[in-house]
Design a binder for these strands. Structure first.
Lengths: 189, 189
DNA sequence: GTCTATAGTAGGATAGAC
DNA sequence: GTCTATCCTACTATAGAC
């Protein structure tokens, strides 16, 4: 994405290792070995292990935030907005499934400043999601008694896509979106 | 559950810490502080940090295995079996939400022998789940084009219950079961 | 951009006193 | 059952040569 390709290579390699063992269990030596260099050499490209983690997580969180903001301000029905959210998750997952492991499991290891920033984005995201579902219920687009369970179960599934998607062979993104929308929303409409 | 209450206290305290920061990021000194003692004292009750992790995870995995085996061998419809699986997850979650965090996120830190045992149980569990859904589709109890997505989305939601449930205030287990069954299966039946 | 060498810290675990 | 003291290892990160 950016021009700093060596740093990006390190970040990408780190995302894979973080996915397998979690941030805390991956050492700079592990990462260096994966890159075929020595641990000390990593520090010519990154400032700290922390910086790698925040690079992975904050970038992804901002992608979700941007995507959600566009959906929220669009002139669509609640159901269409939910479909677009599902689509957003699938797009991000296909592009960076490894990084999503860190976002889901290692966000608590962000340092203070980024932690607060992340938690704000995450809370806003969930808030927007909940508002869309509520609106859908108000205008009778969505039939349900329990908004919280719908928000929770849908988000759980979308957040776990990063684990499931790599195990499927050659799924077409559009077919996946169609089927995902079908399964997640059919119980709701 | 058992008589060895001091060990169980340590395991319970560890489960809470593992949930917050993950197994690798929790030190024996952290755990000792939470217990109000010194790190060295822990070793009078447990053999290693590893033992704490495997105690938490293996016990839970065996609960799921036992529960699933009973459901599989029962004389019920596919839908009823799925309802019983949802019920099983809710029961286990209400009893030990903290431990489920380790089962979900830190199983890869089990040592060789327990890791293989765990992975076998997990694979069997998913296999049984898939078989039940397939049978339901075969006999037209379940209408769907994509079995894998149903298995994935349902399991994702059930596995994430441990994160969501503690944030809800005073949910009655039976109401939760009813609503969960409604949301998870309505899109499927 | 990568290396060797190493500083400085923190981790899991044990020995032995009380 | 808990303590203090400590061993040994492994971690993140830096300095300085090539």
């Amino acid at each position: 994405m950016k021009q700093e390709s060596r740093k990006q290579e390190i970040v990408n390699a780190a995302a894979i290792l973080f996915k397998e063992k979690g941030y805390s269990a991956v050492t700079m030596r592990d990462l260096a070995t994966a890159m075929g260099i020595k641990a000390a050499s990593l520090y010519n490209h990154i400032q700290s292990k922390q910086e790698i983690l925040s690079t992975i997580i904050i970038e992804l969180a901002e992608e979700f935030t941007t995507g959600m903001n566009q959906i929220v301000s669009s002139d669509k029905s609640s159901i269409q907005k939910l479909e677009n959210i599902i689509s957003l998750h699938i797009d991000v997952t296909l592009r960076n499934a490894d990084g999503l492991a860190s976002l889901n499991n290692d966000w608590m290891h962000l340092e203070e400043k980024n932690l607060l920033y992340f938690e704000k984005m995450r809370q806003d995201y969930e808030g927007n999601f909940r508002k869309i579902v509520k609106k859908g219920v108000d205008v009778n687009e969505i039939k349900s008694n329990n908004i919280e369970i719908i928000v929770f179960s849908t988000l759980s599934t979308l957040r776990t896509l990063y684990l499931w998607y790599p195990k499927q062979k050659n799924i077409d993104a559009n077919i996946l979106k169609r089927d995902m929308i079908s399964v997640l929303l059919k119980g709701v409409v």
